Computed example of a mutant assay.
Amino acid sequence: MNIGTRLSLIAGRSTRPLRHIAVAIAAALALVVAGAVQAYEVTPMRVFLQPGGGQNSATITINNIRTEPLPVEIQVFRRVVKADGEQVFEPADDEFITFPPQVQIPAGQSQAIRIQYVGELGETSQAFVVQVTEVPVNKLEGTGIQFTYNFGVAVYVQPPRARARLAVSEAAAADGVLRFKVANSGNDYGFLTGQVLEYNVGGTRVTLTPDDVATLVANPIVPPGATREFALPLDKSIAAAAATGPVDVRLLRGES
Rank of each mutant, 00 (worst) to 15 (best):
E73W: 15
I74G: 04
F77A: 01
R78F: 05
R79M: 08
R79W: 03
D84I: 11
G85C: 05
E86V: 12
E90M: 11
A92I: 00
E95L: 09
I97K: 15
T98Q: 07
P101C: 09
V103R: 10
V103K: 09
P106A: 10
G108R: 11
G108M: 07
G108N: 10
Q109A: 05
S110M: 10
Q111L: 08
A112D: 08
I113M: 06
I113K: 05
R114F: 04
R114P: 03
R114S: 09
Q116C: 13
V118N: 14
G119L: 07
E120G: 15
A127F: 00
A127V: 01
V129L: 08
V130P: 00
V132G: 13
P136S: 00
P136D: 01
P136G: 04
V137Y: 09
V137L: 10
N138S: 14
E141M: 11
E141Q: 10
G144K: 06
G144C: 02
I145C: 04
F147I: 10
N150I: 06
G152F: 09
V153R: 08
A154S: 11
V155R: 04
Y156Q: 10
Y156V: 11
P160G: 09
R161H: 15
A162E: 00
R163T: 15
R165Q: 10
A167H: 08
V168R: 05
E170Y: 13
A171Y: 01
A172N: 15
A172Y: 10
A174G: 04
V177E: 06
L178N: 02
L178Q: 04
R179F: 07
K181I: 08
V182K: 06
G186L: 09
N187E: 06
D188L: 13
G194D: 02
G194E: 06
V196W: 09
E198V: 05
Y199E: 03
Y199Q: 02
V201M: 06
R205Q: 07
V206Y: 02
T207C: 02
L208C: 06
P210D: 05
D211Y: 13
D211C: 10
D211R: 14
D212S: 04
V213M: 05
V213A: 00
V213K: 01
A214K: 05
T215I: 14
